[in-house]
Amino acid sequence: MYVVQITLGPSEYITQVDWSVGPFKLKEIEHCITSIKFVTNQATYGPFGHAVDSTHYSLPVLNNGSVVGMFGRAGDYLHAIGFYVLPF
């Protein structure tokens, strides 16, 4: 396992999150988060993971809002993810 830490700059904020949900065949898991990508007003981080045979989702934050928090449900793997969005 590897860990990636993303540190945003003082004026950087998340404007979009893309992720995919699908099977993890090596562990015979039917549904888990298979990849995630964060887009900020200054850079793109990711995608992290593999999205083969997965359903893709995107959360574009409209009107200069930003993602200010995340939450999820996990066991050994991340099974669900959600986001808190602050409107402009």
Results as ranks from 00 to 15, higher is better:
1 M>E: 14
1 M>T: 11
3 V>E: 11
4 V>D: 12
6 I>F: 10
6 I>G: 08
7 T>Y: 02
8 L>C: 14
8 L>M: 11
9 G>N: 14
11 S>C: 10
11 S>H: 12
13 Y>I: 10
13 Y>E: 15
14 I>R: 00
16 Q>I: 00
17 V>W: 04
18 D>I: 03
18 D>E: 09
18 D>A: 01
19 W>P: 02
19 W>T: 02
20 S>K: 07
20 S>F: 04
20 S>P: 10
24 F>K: 12
25 K>L: 14
25 K>M: 05
26 L>C: 11
26 L>H: 14
26 L>P: 13
27 K>E: 15
28 E>T: 15
28 E>V: 13
28 E>I: 08
29 I>T: 09
29 I>R: 03
31 H>E: 15
32 C>A: 12
32 C>N: 13
33 I>S: 02
33 I>L: 13
34 T>P: 07
36 I>G: 09
38 F>K: 06
39 V>W: 05
39 V>E: 14
40 T>L: 07
40 T>E: 12
40 T>F: 03
41 N>D: 10
41 N>P: 06
42 Q>S: 06
42 Q>V: 02
44 T>W: 01
44 T>V: 14
44 T>F: 05
46 G>A: 03
48 F>Y: 12
49 G>E: 07
49 G>A: 08
54 S>F: 11
55 T>A: 09
55 T>I: 11
57 Y>L: 01
58 S>W: 02
59 L>C: 09
60 P>E: 00
60 P>T: 03
61 V>G: 01
61 V>H: 00
62 L>W: 01
62 L>G: 01
62 L>Y: 00
64 N>W: 07
64 N>L: 09
65 G>F: 03
65 G>E: 05
67 V>F: 01
68 V>A: 10
71 F>S: 08
71 F>A: 11
71 F>P: 00
71 F>T: 10
72 G>E: 00
72 G>C: 10
73 R>W: 06
75 G>D: 15
75 G>H: 05
76 D>H: 09
77 Y>I: 08
78 L>W: 13
79 H>V: 07
81 I>T: 04
85 V>M: 04
85 V>N: 04
86 L>K: 14
87 P>D: 08
87 P>W: 01
87 P>Y: 01
88 F>Q: 15
